[in-house]
Amino acid sequence: MLDDFLIRALIAGLGLVLATGALGSFVVWRRMAYFGDSTSHAAILGVALSFAFSMPFYLGTLAVAVGMALLVAWLTGRGQGMDTVLGVIAHSALATGLLAASFIPGLRMNLDAFLFGDILAVTRSDLVWIWGGALAVLGLLVWRWQRLITASVNEELAVAAGINPKFERLILSLALAIVVAIAIRIVGALLISAMLIVPAAAARGFARTPEQMAGSATFIGALAVVCGLFASLRLDTPAGPSIIVVSAAIYAVSLVAYRK
């Protein structure tokens, strides 16, 4: 059954969605959209490094994404503006990555697959990475759930309850780094943050609690993966962008249906 590329693509997409539904909700609640965008763009440097040192690109992207999160935390802690720090680091990393890629023949040919994703080409070992990463993210979020929610509602209330918001923020950065690493093959560096934000934004209208929003975002993401893949097959469109376009359509419908 796993021999069919379409089945593999479906399993990969649904695995990713398992992580992006809940994490994407946090990205929306905490206004981390730009952070997500920057991390995924920076991951191109990780891809280049992985090719240069011939290791699995999952490790390289993960390392660069984690490194970027720590660097950003450190610089903003020293009084630099978040937007500026992100803009500088992420785009420097992206530019360096593109530059490096031009020197690596194996990557020069394949760069598109990492910028725009290539879900139809995922292999069995990709599936292990993707599901392993997605379950790790989900486990991380479930483990810290009450603390993460409290810290996202209001940091002052969280601190008074003995929660360390800086630590919870780091947990989210780590989860984001893992998602970037596993999503880059599926939707591509340019569209990872859309995969996080669009289903969560669409879920907002249906939800009355944070849990309902995370659940609905997961469901909407799954629906988008299934519909997007079939649309891509029938219409011969690129798969990653098709998935995002379907989520965007669901978002538009949710706006109209739940206009209050």
Partner: peptide, 11 residues
Amino acid sequence: RVHIERAMPMT
């Protein structure tokens, strides 16, 4: 003063 993010649904 408590600011609750409106993007988070919360009963």
